[in-house]
Amino acid sequence: MTTLGIAMVGHAFMGAAHSQAWRVAPHFFDLPARPVMSVLCGRDPDRTRAAAERLGWAESVTDWKSVLDRDDVHVVDICTPGDTHAEIAIAALDAGKHVLCEKPMANSVAEAVAMAEAAERAALRGVRAMVGFSYRRVPALSLARELVAQGRLGRVHHVRAVYLQDWIVDPAAPLSWRLDKEKAGSGALGDIGAHVVDAAQFILGDTISEVSGTLETFVSERPVASSHSGLSGTAASDRTGPVTVDDAALFLARFTGGALGSFEATRFANGRKNALRIEVNGSAGSVAFDFEDMNVLQFFDGTEDSVVAGFRRIVVTEPGHPYTAAWWPAGHGLGYEHAFTHQAVDFVRAVAAGTDPAPSFADGLQVQRVLAAVEASAASRTWQQV
């Protein structure tokens, strides 16, 4: 395999990020197969054609099903709203195409189960599937996982994880598909809460087994927007429509290995644009990460003499750190888009090697089960098993 033809479905926010990754990956990393940006799929022919030209795709089509029979397409990259993920992913896998699917994997556990089963069938034929939890490819978070795996934190006791945004604090912000449960599945819980669930499980190498949570919608009606294609739009009239998802989610968690966790996801944290923060406390040390300072990992070594002990600021740009050797000299930081490039690199390498990439669809199903358990807990006001 010398080339890997990519067909991407969707070309908004995530489509742009994935396009950047496919363009850049082969220029900085030594890959066993070169990704080729073969075709972009979208609903509107004019907008899709313009996006293909802008983002670097060779051609555009309006029917995603048309790429499933093409010999020059080996991978289907899904960057659409959650309500379409299951149909596209299952059809692509059954057609023998490798699949990269944006998170959250599905809008329901039933859809996620069907997708995981399709991935299991496909794996028997050498066809691979991966979920796009890009934050686990941030070098500092990958380093945190390494430190935990090496036992540098000892036995993990606590995890605190939050994801804070503020893009819908204004009640006049118009409706978008992300505020529609039928399209998005859930609100802050699935959109950004899924990221911290995956990040916590990734760092610990453990899974959440039980949750107790609550959900809240602060603004229940919003202006109807002229476009539902992005994070926001322009209000078309004085008409309003219902917000059918949560604005904020909070939950406690227990991990299979015994650690406790607290999680918060909100799009109502004024002044916080994209603040993903996670701290892990163990019997021998702690790590702390804040995406607003994404090239830094804070590490506390509890075995040091208390006279000199303190959190150590590790600038995660050294050649020995995860992913960083392919980029710039030490001290020259990376950005948001680099995690997507690392995701593309890992996916291509796994496909070429004939191994299962991570996170797998089974991992995506686990996250989906956590989200569903939080929703059930919020409704019943009880602890729920995952």
Rank of each mutant, 00 (worst) to 15 (best):
T2Q: 11
H11I: 05
F13S: 12
H18P: 06
Q20F: 15
R23Q: 11
R23H: 14
A33H: 11
P35E: 09
M37A: 11
V39N: 08
P45G: 06
R47L: 14
R47P: 03
R47W: 13
A58W: 11
E59D: 13
S60N: 06
T62R: 09
K65H: 13
L68I: 07
D69A: 14
D69E: 15
R70E: 04
R70C: 10
D77R: 09
D77I: 15
D77N: 12
G82S: 12
I88R: 07
A89Q: 01
D94K: 08
C101K: 01
M105A: 07
A118K: 01
R121V: 03
L124H: 12
V127T: 04
R128D: 00
S134K: 13
S142Y: 04
L143F: 14
R145F: 13
G151F: 08
L153E: 00
L153G: 00
R155T: 04
L164F: 00
L164K: 03
Q165C: 01
Q165K: 10
I168L: 06
K181W: 11
A184W: 02
G185Q: 04
S186W: 04
T207F: 05
I208E: 03
S209E: 13
T214L: 10
T214P: 02
F218E: 01
R222K: 14
R222D: 00
A225L: 11
G233K: 00
T234E: 05
S237N: 11
S237C: 03
D238R: 12
G241F: 12
V243M: 13
T244D: 04
V245K: 05
D246Y: 09
A248K: 02
L250W: 02
A253C: 02
F255Y: 07
G258E: 04
E264I: 00
R267F: 06
N270Q: 06
G282M: 08
A284T: 08
V287C: 14
N295Q: 07
F300C: 07
G302F: 14
E304R: 15
V307K: 12
A309Y: 06
A309F: 12
V315I: 01
V316F: 00
H321A: 02
T324V: 08
A326D: 00
P329L: 06
E337A: 12
H342V: 02
Q343C: 08
D346Q: 05
R349C: 03
G354F: 07
A358P: 00
F361Y: 12
S377H: 13
R381T: 11
Q384K: 12
Q384E: 11
Q385H: 13
